[in-house]
Computed example of a mutant assay.
Amino acid sequence: MNPRDLREKIRTGEFNTHTSGVGSNYVQANLAIVPKEYAFDFLLFANRNPKSCPIIDVLEPGVVESALAAGSDIRSDIPLYFVYENGKISEKRHELKEIWRDDFVSFLIGCSFTFESALLKEGVPLKHIEQNKNVAMYITNRQTKQAGEFSGPVVVSMRPIKNELVQKAIDITAQFPNMHGSPIHVGDPKEIGIDDISKPDFGEFTEYGEEETPVFWECGVTPQSAAIHSQIPLVITHAPGHMFVTDVTNEEFLRNRS
C-alpha cells in the first residue's frame, strides 16, 4: 500500500491494526514523545543505546510533520498510541490531537519491520507475517545504559528462522544498523531472561519447531520499558507493532546512510 494512502486510512480509522507486512518496501518507525524538559535526556539515552533506539528523525517542540513523510501528522498517523503517566499506561488512544502540547518533542526510531522486507526478498521466510501476526516481543534481563531519568531493560523481538538460514538472516540484518542491525541473541531464550517463550510481553507468539531457531533482535519498544522503569510524568509511544510508515523506501534509506 502507498504510505500516504495508508496514513490517510489510519487517520480516518479505516486501518487500525498492526503494520507488520504492510507497506513493506517503506521504512517504518517506532515513536516516543516526551515533554521538552526530558528531550535531551531521551536523546542521550538513545545515543547510548543505538541498537535499541536508533533515531531516524526528531521533530522539534510542537512540530507534527516528519521530514520523512510529507503531509504527515504524528498525532494521528499511527494506528494506536500508549500514554504513560508515572510509569503506568493511563490510556490508549487512536489520536493525540485532544491532548497535544506545544512542548512535545517527537522521536522516530528505526524499526525491524524495515529489515523484514529485505529478509523476505532474500528468501528468508517470516512465519509471523505468513500467519498475519504481530511480531513477538519480550522484556529481557539485559539492561540499557542509563541517561538522566531514562533506564530499564532491553526489549527484543523474536522471529523463528530456519536453521540453515540463520547466518543469512544475521548477515542481511547487519546491513541495517539504523533498524536494530544484527541480532542480540540466537538460540536459548532463557539465556536472556525469557522463561516462557510462549508468553510474549508484547505482540503474538509464533510457534517454532526443531527445524527452526529463535532469533532475537533489539527492539524499539525499549523506550516503553524505559518509560515504565523511569516513571517520568508523561511519555507517549506507539502501541507495539503499530508503526509510523514513512515515504522513504528501504533502498533509499540504505543508500542515504551508506
Rank of each mutant, 00 (worst) to 15 (best):
Y84H: 03
E149R: 15
S90V: 15
P214E: 12
I172V: 04
D196K: 15
G187T: 14
T144S: 06
G110H: 01
H18N: 11
L80Y: 10
I55D: 00
V83D: 07
I170Q: 06
P233T: 14
S112Q: 12
I99W: 01
K92I: 01
A70K: 15
G193H: 02
A69V: 03
I109C: 00
D196M: 07
R142G: 09
S198G: 08
W217H: 11
E191Q: 15
V83Y: 09
S52T: 11
P79I: 06
E95P: 09
L68A: 07
Q146Y: 08
K168M: 12
E218V: 13
E85R: 05
K168F: 08
G203M: 04
H180I: 13
L31H: 10
D57G: 06
P240T: 11
A69F: 01
R255N: 14
E85W: 11
F202Q: 04
S66T: 09
E251L: 13
N163C: 11
L43Y: 15
R48W: 12
M137R: 06
Q143V: 08
E130A: 10
T213Y: 10
R257G: 05
E251K: 06
G21S: 01
N30C: 04
G181K: 03
H18C: 01
V215A: 12
D73A: 08
G62S: 03
I89F: 04
K168G: 12
V248G: 05
G148E: 03
K121C: 02
P183V: 11
V63G: 10
F244V: 02
A118R: 00
L234R: 06
N132I: 12
A39M: 07
I74M: 05
D247N: 03
P177T: 01
L120E: 13
G23I: 00
K133A: 11
G21Y: 01
F113T: 12
P79S: 10
K199G: 07
D247V: 00
H180V: 05
S106V: 04
I161M: 12
E116G: 09
F113Q: 11
V105F: 08
T246W: 01
V63S: 13
E60N: 12
P50D: 00
D188F: 07
S72F: 06
I228A: 12
I236P: 03
Y84T: 07
V155G: 06
Q28C: 04
A70D: 15
I78T: 03
W100S: 01
G187P: 14
Y38E: 02
E91P: 08
D57E: 13
